[in-house]
Write a protein that binds this DNA or RNA. Sequence first.
DNA 1: CTGAAAGCGCTAACAT
DNA 2: ATGTTAGCGCTTTCAG
Lengths: 336, 336
Amino acid sequence: MPTLADVAKVAGVGVMSVSRVVNGTRRVTPETERKVRAAIRRIGYEPNEAARILKGHRARIIGLIVPDLADPFFATYANAVQETAWKAGYMTLMAASGHRDEVERREAEIMIQRQVAGLLVTPVGFRNDHFTAARRHGIPIVSFDRPLENVDADSLLVDNRAAAIRVTEHLIEHGHRNILCLAEDEKIFTLTERVSGYSDVMRRARLPVRVCLVGSVSGSVSDQLNFALHSTPAPTAIFATRNVIGVEVLRELQEQSVQIPEKMALIAFDDFDAAALVRPGITVVRQPIAELGRTAASMLLARLSGNGQAESSRVVLSTELIIRESCGCRKQSKPA
Amino acid sequence: MPTLADVAKVAGVGVMSVSRVVNGTRRVTPETERKVRAAIRRIGYEPNEAARILKGHRARIIGLIVPDLADPFFATYANAVQETAWKAGYMTLMAASGHRDEVERREAEIMIQRQVAGLLVTPVGFRNDHFTAARRHGIPIVSFDRPLENVDADSLLVDNRAAAIRVTEHLIEHGHRNILCLAEDEKIFTLTERVSGYSDVMRRARLPVRVCLVGSVSGSVSDQLNFALHSTPAPTAIFATRNVIGVEVLRELQEQSVQIPEKMALIAFDDFDAAALVRPGITVVRQPIAELGRTAASMLLARLSGNGQAESSRVVLSTELIIRESCGCRKQSKPA
DNA sequence: CTGAAAGCGCTAACAT
DNA sequence: ATGTTAGCGCTTTCAG
């Protein structure tokens, strides 16, 4: 592989002229520039990142850490991030933490050690010292989907509370008084927010707050749903706070031939393929995922080019309620 | 950040002893090793990759290039690859080519320049010189899902022909004589294989080969499907050769209230959420995607540790036909 | 078994 | 505007 010195020799100039042309660090005679560019083209020179990094520069790489790359939500997000970063000349080092604190921690450490220029992370845990470490190394961080407590980082969140409030109110408008809220038993910021939005509305309306947890500790969706169906008074509507829960609820209701929305109304968080394909269509909260990815990446890129504010920012985007029929609405119409 | 020299100073030994302990390159006195390890722990030393790479070593990074990271197929695959690589101590640099030849080429070039240890790629095009370049640099390549012609690389493929044959025969067994095959108009290896499997079976059975192309050039699924539905004789079964085509066909048939499978049978390639949720369930060809990802990564890792064969290998995995009801089968039963 | 020195390719700092 | 030098942290080579 040809080096910068090789280019200099071929072009008949000093190494620094070449370096300056390549990086545009300073002005150079048009004549010199021409010679250098010609030489570069002729011998096919490409700068060596490793040497640059060794000199104390940052890699033109951004590190992306998410809980699960196979989750459609994060896949769409990751794709948008990668695309945006690529356009700005950055590659993306991606890692899935598998929802595990220690894995996330180790991944962050290795990325820091690799001198990534910035970190884009959806944190799973509460111990955040690995991220404070990154900040100490001067690596900017943007947290996505969940806030990063006690760390100097920008964050891009979605207004989960508002969405949950909207959902709950919509169901109440349809006349439901017994609304079941299904959530994961793990303590994930987004789910907590959604549950809290639901609870507030119910309390304010003096309706019973019925939150039901599912997961490895609390039992399967199918089991929990069955308990609820046979309780008195039985719920007449369900708010599924997460994409996979929504899909499982749907499967279970179909299995048991429970009429939607007559016997049971349903609104789920996150749009999914099947939601538009099944009859009746499932009403969902849609997050603008690709846009979120582009925004998150842009926030980080802004920091990298030094265009950021001094203090860390917190951007909150809102969601959209996609009305289909599972909430009780008629096709293409607004609720009564 | 502490350097190797710092460790040496603290431990009271030479730098090379430290290097040897860290890399296990050669035997050292237990006493020396103890001192070095203690010092490393004490000052929190982590080796600097950049310096290592500069010395001519490869980065412990593998490059992954796929057409689209948001596509559930590639997302699941990428997740499995990343996980497998991580366990072997490698990080994963991911890039989506957006199905574009030039982008893929540039991404490969940059990865080579970054000294990735190996490349895992799902090529979109036919000009493969960027990959031969990688081979010249001694970077091993595994091509996934599609072969890489004229390049010295391992490949991991799925038996698309066999799957298509199975699908077509299954529909014929159900008594269908007019079977429509819907494919993309772009020349993608996997789709070509599927179409060819279908055609062979139809020709052998002396039935009409009816391949219908959709895409940016040929028109939307909806349009093409409408043409076909009003042709004489109208098809009574459809083979959708790709996940998104399957979903769109399903949507269109529902829209037009075409009874499945009575008026129109349907088998699609790639399983999707909705396939199991809609009534009737959609019969699909399922690829073991996560397993494919793990296998592909393992093939590359084997090369990296020098355990590979001398000549390049070509592994072909087979698929599974998930029988639901859209093909005409009864629930939980085999075809007549 | 251990240490000292050279240099990988690049750029900051200085010199011209 | 351009060239020269030193050194980033590591490992290869050669001496001890």
